[in-house]
Amino acid sequence: MIMAKRFLSAFLAASLLFTGSMQAVQAAMIGTEQVAESTISAKGAQDRAKIVDMLSRDEVQSELVKRGIDPVEAKSRVAALTDDEASNMASQLDKAPAGGGIIGAIVLVFFVLLLTDILGFTKIFPFTRSVR
């Protein structure tokens, strides 16, 4: 009986070790997806930082307050953007004319954001666009 138990535990230990090394062999090559996630989503974070940076400018903040938008709330919305949306917005901001126009553009982009946020209510089921 004791022998049998010993044998069983040795067998279990060996099989555990074996499955461990099997997984490790598979993990040896790093997949493309892992690199894609770290490099491309790192860009999303940069884009977000860029937008927050712009929202932090004094003239933009006063413009937001004038339109009844809480600047803190604005920043928290930026944090909620997906990478795609962040890069979309950042590129819109890049295209905006330099100088005075930029404040208007930032505020405008923010209103677009607000709008998509409202639309977000209808996106509780993201794939329900029925198509004729």
Binding site: F127, T128, R129, S130, V131, R132
Partner: peptide
Amino acid sequence: YMPSRQGSLQIE
């Protein structure tokens, strides 16, 4: 095609 929605999803 999803019969229930008479349509197709974009991701699909």
